[in-house]
Structures are given as C-alpha cells and as structure tokens.
C-alpha cells in the first residue's frame, strides 16, 4: 500500500487518455475526435464507451436502453424520487433536486449498492462454480456471511415476482442476448433460493446485472452505467411538486412526529 510516487511527479500537465477540449477547435473523447467520429452516436453508446472504452452493437444498446427504461418510475413516494419532489416543493432548482435524488439512489437496500453487490457476487459465484464448487455451497456461504443476496427478494414486495423482469427478458430475447452464462446462473440461483426456506425470487437487480455482465461489463462498469437508471422518473416528480402550492408535497403536521425520547428536562 505504501509504494507510491511523490506528488511532485504529478505536478504540471495532467496526463490523460480520456480526452479534453480545444475551445474553438475540437474535442477528443477517448482517443477519438468527438465531432468528426462520434457526432451522431446514440447517447447511451457514447456514455458506455466513456465508461468501458468499448463500443457496443445495436442489439446490446437496445438491451442497455431497456434496463434503464423499465425501471423509470415517476413515483414521488420512492425515497430517491422523494428527494426530487421535496426539492420542487421547497422551490429549489431542478438540477439540485435531481442530482441529489441520483446520489440518493446509491442506496444500500435498493439501487446502486445492491447493483454492484449482485454483479460482484455473480462474478465470484461463476468463478467458484467453474472451479468445481456446487452452487448450493456458494450461495449458502454468501447467505451465511452476508445474510442476504441483493438481487433476490425485494424490500417493498418480498415474495411477488418483479414486474420488470419478464419485460426486459423479452427484449433481450428479441435481440438474441439471453444465452449468456451469467443469466443462466442468475436463474439457477433463483431456483435454489425458491426451493429452500428462503423463498426469495430474483428481482430486477439480478436479471439486469446478469444481462450486462453477459454483454461484457465488469461490476464497476455496470455500476457506472446504471447511474442514470432511475433518472427518467425523477423530473416528473420534481415538476409536479413545483406545480403544487409551495411546501404542499408530503406536508407533515407537528403531531405526525411521534416522539420516543427522554422526557422534558431543563438545561
């Protein structure tokens, strides 16, 4: 951990392979001229190229689009969307509210922490199974050490089937992208969990991760790709809250605070 060149080495020009702009002239994006070579790119193609350095086929991009589209819920009750709605209610700016809602999506019981954890588990599980360990042992160990597996079960609807899975799976099937090893493994894990005492169904996090891993993403690439996954649902929450009277979205009366602390006391 301690071997690192001194900071003096990094003073002066910043060395990069990612790109930069030459105002009034051109911009470079990962070694390509943005306006000459990438100007008519699909936005998600460019976004994912920025993350991975790899270009993707139209079929893969359709699936990547579908993963975003089908989890865009303009429901202001959802905790991340609620941030955007409350910002609108308090007459903050749209970008502040939505940026904070996106940051909130890096949550532990849903969103980005679950996404990267299930992608990481699928990679580790596949490696372990390929080296000869039985699936039951690999999944059992994960449940013992971490108590749950992020892509299975759901905090708001534990036993119901995830309404997004069949839709995205159908799109992936149409694009002939359902034959990958990670998707197969994700279903095998569900089968194991459903047959045991856990009764946990695969949720969207597992199926989306499996599809993306089969496309060739690493867990960290997948995590960054998912940054805007909930984005499309947020502006509607902000906009509608902005059109209600100020502070009229989710108002709470004083008596809605249920106090459970120490009794009144003098300082």
């Amino acid at each position: 951990m301690n071997e690192r060149p001194p900071l003096e080495t990094f003073e002066g020009s910043l060395n990069t392979t990612m790109g930069g702009c030459f105002p009034g002239e051109r911009a470079v994006f990962r070694g390509h001229d943005l306006h000459a070579e990438l100007s008519d790119s699909d936005w998600i193609d460019l976004y994912v190229f920025g993350i991975t350095g790899r270009r993707h086929t139209p079929s893969q991009l359709k699936v990547l689009h579908a993963i975003w589209v089908n989890t865009s819920y303009p429901d202001p009750r959802l905790w991340n969307n609620r941030v955007a709605a409350l910002a609108g209610s308090a007459r903050s700016t749209g970008i502040l509210g939505i940026s904070a809602a996106l940051a909130t999506s890096e949550a532990a019981i849903y969103g980005r922490q679950i996404d990267i954890a299930i992608a990481d588990f699928l990679v580790r599980a596949r490696r372990a199974i390929e080296s000869g360990r039985p699936l039951s042992e690999v999944v059992g160990e994960e449940l013992r050490t971490r108590r749950s597996i992020g892509g299975y079960g759901r905090p708001v609807a534990k036993s119901a089937a995830d309404e997004r899975n069949a839709v995205v799976l159908a799109i992936a099937k149409k694009e002939d992208l359902v034959g990958g090893g990670y998707l197969k493994l994700a279903f095998e894990i569900e089968e194991f969990l459903l047959s045991g005492r856990w009764r946990m169904r695969m949720n969207y996090a597992a199926i989306a991760a499996a599809l993306a891993l089969d496309i060739g993403f690493s867990p960290r690439e997948y995590y960054l790709y998912l940054l805007p996954a909930f984005l499309a649902g947020m502006p509607p929450c902000f906009i509608e809250a902005s059109t209600r009277p100020e502070q009229a979205t989710f108002p709470l009366r004083c008596s809605s605070l249920i106090y459970e602390g120490p009794a009144r006391r003098a300082w």
Partner: peptide, 27 residues
C-alpha cells in the same frame, strides 16, 4: 408519521403545521 427519539414539536390546535415549541431530546 415519523418516529423520533430526538425531536418533538407542539402546535396550536388551529394551526397544526406551525410549531409553537420544539424540543431536542427533551430540551
């Protein structure tokens, strides 16, 4: 409702959204 060990508010009967007193851990 929001459960809290930290914060309590009182209001006048006719104005339930305006706090007349706020207590932090009882103070």
């Amino acid at each position: 409702v929001i459960h809290s060990k930290l914060w309590q508010e009182e209001s006048e009967p006719g104005d339930p959204f305006t706090a007349t007193a706020c207590y932090c851990s009882g103070y």
